[in-house]
Each structure stands twice: as C-alpha cells, then as structure tokens.
Amino acid sequence: MRGFAMGMLARRFQAAGFRTKVFEYASLAHGADRSAERLGESLRQLSDGGGAVHLVGHSLGGLVALLATVDQSLPGRTICLGSPLLGSEAARRVAKFASWTMGESGDRLIAGLDHWRGPREVGVIAGRLPYGLAQVLGGFGDDNDGTVRVAETQLPGIQDHLVLPASHSGLVFSQDVANASVGFLRTGRFAFGSR
C-alpha cells in the first residue's frame, strides 16, 4: 500500500498528541532491506532533536521498521501491524507462480526474521478476520487476517502481542488498533484485547 493508506491512523495518533510523518518506500523496486537503510537515515535525522521517535509499520512496513532499528539505540518504540515477521506463507505460495509480483521484497517476505534482538520495545497487533489474499490461495488452517497468519506475527523477543478482529487491510483503519497502539507507545504494553 502507498503511504496515504496510513493517513487515518496518522490522524488518530495526532489526536492523541503525537506528531506524525509518513515514510513511503518502493517495496517492489528497492526491497525491504534497502528501504530499511533509507528509514534508518531518516530516523537519525528525526532524532537529532532528542526525544523518542516511534515507528508504526503495516505488513511489510513492520519488517522494514525492525530492520531499520535492529542496530540503532534511538529512543522510541515500534509497532508492527499484520507483519509476517516470521515469514509469509502467502508469499511462499505466490512465489511458486508469480514471484515477480513481490519484486525486490519477495525474499524478505518469505524469510522474515528469526528473533528480535534490537534495543527497542516492539509490539505486534495481528488481525483475525480472514478476508483477503488467503482465500484466493486456498485459505489457511489457522487464525489469520486474510493475508498473514497470526502465528507468523509472533516473533520471539517482542515486548507484547495483541490479536484484534480486523482484516489485513482493515488494521490501518480500525479504531481499536489505533487505541491499542497509542497505549503501547505510551507504556510499552497493550491495554486490552486477547494476547
């Protein structure tokens, strides 16, 4: 999705007192790792004034956020929304017949990460309304948001994990997701929902 898709979520963070900036990246042309390098540079510029710089990434954006901060001690917390942090079953299935659709990000989507070892507290919100790509790909046998399985979001080493009734795309429009995210950015824990 393009950066404008994060607009409603950004407005909800602003209403809660946060200043926001949407970071756009070209996932097909540049890939997750190169985009993470760009994000890391942007973070260093934003943090020059001191204070925390929080990150909220959706789907691949969560992986990009973690890659950008794994070796940085910049203050702030990170939230991943529907991010296939352990690798994506949907991406593995798509790669069998149309890997070109994932561009330079395909390998990272398939591989994911093995553990969070960075200094930031990371919170993950997964969805459990199974409407999306998975239906076209034959479905998943467990809880999912239609694109990412809940199990794929449970990266060892994260601070907190929450599952909410939202589809993959719906995560960025959900008021419950925004409320839970604000709570995590302020305290390092999600305040409600199922773990």
Rank of each mutant, 00 (worst) to 15 (best):
S73Q: 14
T153V: 07
S174C: 07
L133K: 12
S174M: 09
S83T: 09
G82I: 10
G170C: 08
A134L: 10
G61L: 07
A98E: 01
G62T: 04
E24V: 13
S47D: 13
Q154H: 06
G103A: 06
Y131Q: 01
F192Y: 15
Q154E: 13
K21C: 01
E41V: 13
S167E: 14
T101L: 15
G82M: 07
P165S: 07
P130R: 04
S27Q: 12
G61C: 11
L86I: 07
P130W: 01
L55N: 05
S105T: 15
T20A: 05
H115I: 03
E37I: 09
F190K: 12
G87R: 04
G132Q: 06
A68L: 01
G146L: 11
T187R: 13
A90N: 00
R92E: 10
G51D: 08
G139F: 10
H115L: 08
L81H: 10
L63M: 15
G132I: 05
L28V: 13
A178C: 05
A166K: 04
I158M: 06
V122C: 05
A16L: 03
S83I: 08
S47P: 00
A68D: 06
S88V: 03
R2Q: 08
H54M: 03
H54Y: 05
S169N: 11
D176V: 02
R117E: 10
G40Y: 13
S83H: 09
C80K: 03
T69M: 09
Q72S: 15
Q14Y: 01
V172L: 11
R186L: 04
G87V: 04
F4K: 02
V53G: 08
F190G: 13
Y25T: 07
L63V: 10
E121G: 04
S174H: 11
G139H: 03
T153L: 06
R108Y: 02
G40E: 09
R128E: 14
F184R: 08
R128K: 14
S35L: 02
R11T: 02
A180C: 06
A16H: 05
A191V: 12
R117V: 06
E104P: 00
F173M: 12
